[in-house]
Design a protein around this nucleic acid. Structure first.
Lengths: 203, 203
DNA sequence: CTACATCTATACCAATCGGTACACATCCCG
DNA sequence: CGGGATGTGTACCGATTGGTATAGATGTAG
């Protein structure tokens, strides 16, 4: 058996930066959706020709998944920051306002790729559609657990149904993504987020 | 110049019902989105071959628009019913609960075609994307005007920003569409709707 | 019946889709 | 200088895309 520290640099080196290429692919999928982005769009925008793209990332579907991973990874710090707040309500407020910002970043596509990447699709894109649905469900589940933690710690009233509350705020954040994709401003979204918080259950 | 009451029945009659074909097309676009629905999907599902479809409805884009018109027309009665309620708050409540039902009809695709028909897209579908955005904006505008009416009539506090409130509830309804497309139940959506109403501005 | 208008069916179009074969270029190792 | 491993570029693949030409089928009008 050969050593696992395989030769790092053998053969002709890559002519492009893998991470930057992934970022560009992410932006394309984000702005046009999975089905709306063609291989020609990708090769043109990444400045890479087709065989290089396939050698580096596999097929279109696996390229999307790799780009999506980067996207989700960046959002994890937002969730972590938010959930570190002392109360569930503060966590939700931080999360929603943070999402309002993330969905209206100046030089990035507007909205959220987990919503607009493949909300519905034809049969070919069904696996991607399912993957995105699973990511959204994971976010909702994480939020629910944070609210349940608040309930255990006493800052959320005992009578509250945490699953319902998590679903409500998740729904608001997904609606914000639709609004962002349609051109709503960051301030618009932040107002929506703050209004939604008025529904927080009173003590 | 020939009389405008053109011969109604001359030549070989149609072998299919136009309205039923439009309904089937609507369901396809609704479930798979504009880009995710191919001409082959359509001809197969409608039981019509290609030239007949083009003769009756024009190209794919105009077929989508005709199907969309039927969809929107059906929702107009919901909006009318809701807006006839005596107060703005009752109107919004009726509207949101009605949308929860409309997005989870038993034998229909889940969600809302104005959201999932083409939330984002490639360049070809940009006109459809814009059309759907315009329809969503029209719904938000109508809701805003109903809330403003409530403000004039005194059932909405004078300090309330009606545009903000309309945007908030529109955002909730669009988030509900995302949830519905992902498989949320009617009861789930109704609970979300009722929770969102807790944010209604107190008198 | 014939003449005409309309719809249907088959078969096709150029363009694009996602994906790949293959020759060549460029690196490290010896 | 090879030799082997890897990446790049061109040119291509079969399948599918949206859309149409054309011939035949089926109706009304005279």
């Amino acid at each position: 058996m050969k050593p696992k520290t395989a030769a790092a640099q053998v053969g002709r080196p890559r002519g492009f930066d893998v991470d930057e290429a992934l970022d560009r692919a992410l932006r394309l999928f984000w702005r046009q959706g999975y089905e709306g982005t063609s291989l020609s769009d990708l090769t043109e925008q990444l400045g890479i020709n087709r065989p290089s793209l396939y050698a580096a990332f596999g097929n279109k579907e696996s390229l999307f998944r790799k780009a999506l991973d980067r996207y989700v990874e960046r959002h994890l710090v937002l969730y972590r920051d938010a959930f570190d707040r002392p109360t569930a309500r503060a966590a939700v407020e931080h999360l929603l306002l943070g999402l309002a910002d993330a969905q209206t970043l100046p030089r990035e596509p507007k909205g959220c790729i987990t919503v607009q990447g493949a909300l519905v699709s034809g049969a070919d894109a069904a696996p991607i559609q399912g993957e995105l649905a699973a990511r959204r469900a994971a976010g909702e589940q994480a939020l629910r657990e944070r609210i349940e933690q608040g309930q255990r710690e006493g800052d959320v009233p005992a009578h509250v149904d945490c699953a319902d509350l998590a679903r409500y705020f998740t729904t608001v954040s997904q609606g914000m993504a639709v609004q962002a994709a349609t051109g709503a401003s960051r301030e618009d979204l932040r107002r929506v987020a703050r209004t939604s918080l008025l529904a927080w259950p009173p003590a």
